[in-house]
């Protein structure tokens, strides 16, 4: 285990940002801290980096007790949401900063910076100022700068949050591939569940200063520990007293005899690209279901058609009982 966080608590005045949090982050993997804004995930990252001091608890990085070390002695690379580029220094000098501080020989700095600029595809921008780069380029520069000092862990605080959707997707992809090349233990903070599911090896869901669940993307998606994780990781709808993903709702013809199905009427059909979103109004609830276009066409569905719906029988997990609040013990239900 690379980063060990034990019983960390942090308050800002009355506000409890982290409430007795303990978590182990594995070596060499890409871990996402996922949660809503103000949930404490950025605070946890900043405590690992030493940019914030925990009120109580301990932080260990690769076996080294870092609890009371200042940030410059922790050997972590930190990437900020708004890049934190050194505006008065060229891209090359930005990347070289950590090496210059460490008084490495000029030739070594030069070759290492060249390697890193090639790694982040910024060779031809070496002599520009950060202000002459686009947001995506600036963030790649910030990544190269953080990697230059060969950190034990790389920490990224909402690294793609300030970029537009298209660049964000590209960089996400690129980060995943970069990590497969460099293998440095990486922790990144995000509130975007898609980003976490796509990039991370392991996800830590944080809400209200507490950890809700830790697991691989598949585990979290298929076996959410509670109602909060279920809702946060993707769209949900309620069928009877269970929460279920809309794509796990099965629509059947009205005249069938399958057990456990509810009868309802289609009240809305919306098509978004390859996906069809359908609303079915049963006695006292509106159920959302999504189908692919082909499934939709095969079923001959129209507005006002009466159908029967149920949770797809092959979904063994992935639903939770509605009343399990985020702070109650997890009641992963099997249907």
């Amino acid at each position: 285990m690379s980063i060990e966080i034990a019983n960390v608590t942090k308050r800002f005045g009355e506000f409890v940002a982290l409430d007795d949090v303990s978590v182990s982050i594995p070596s060499g993997q890409l871990t996402a801290l996922l949660g809503p804004s103000g949930g404490g995930k950025s605070t946890l990252l900043r405590i690992i980096a030493g940019l914030e001091q925990a009120d109580s608890g301990r932080v260990q990085i690769e076996g080294l007790d870092a609890t009371n070390l200042p940030p410059q002695r922790r050997n972590v690379g930190f990437v900020f949401q708004h890049y934190a580029a050194f505006k008065h220094l060229s891209v090359r000098r930005n990347v070289a900063f950590g090496l210059e501080i460490r008084r490495r020989p000029k030739a070594e700095i030069r070759s290492r910076v060249d390697d890193l600029l090639a790694l982040v595809h910024l060779e031809q921008f070496a002599d520009r100022l950060p202000s002459q780069l686009s947001g995506g380029q600036r963030q790649r520069m910030a990544l190269a700068r953080a990697l230059a000092v060969q950190p034990t862990v790389l920490l990224l605080d909402e690294p793609f949050g300030a970029l537009d959707a298209k660049v964000r997707k590209e960089l996400r992809d690129w980060l995943r591939r970069l990590h497969d090349e460099v293998h440095v233990t990486t922790v990144f903070v995000t509130h975007d569940q898609e980003e976490a599911l796509e990039v991370a090896d392991e996800i830590v869901v944080i809400n209200d200063g507490r950890i809700e669940q830790i697991g691989s993307p598949d585990e979290l998606y298929d076996r959410p520990a509670n109602d909060f994780v279920m809702r946060f990781l993707g769209p949900v709808t309620q069928l009877g007293d269970r929460l279920v993903r809309p794509h796990d709702v099965q629509i059947l013809p009205a005249d069938g005899h399958e057990p456990g199905a509810t009868t309802g009427r289609i009240t809305r059909i919306t098509r978004v690209g390859f996906e069809i979103r359908i609303e079915i109004t049963a006695d006292d609830q509106v159920i959302a279901a999504t189908l692919t276009r082909n499934e939709f066409l095969a079923l001959h569905l129209q507005l006002d058609t009466t159908v029967r719906v149920r949770i797809a029988p092959e979904i063994q997990a992935g639903t939770v009982a509605v009343d399990s609040g985020p702070n109650l013990p997890a009641t992963t239900a099997v249907t």
Binding site: L51, P71, Q72, N75, G77, F86, F97, I101, A146
Partner: peptide, 22 residues
């Protein structure tokens, strides 16, 4: 300018004096 640049410098290994000067 805020203090992000200074924090970045600290995380890259600069001490208080180096951060101020550079």
């Amino acid at each position: 300018v805020g203090d992000e640049q200074e924090q970045a410098a600290r995380s890259l290994g600069a001490n208080a004096i180096q951060t101020f000067r550079r």
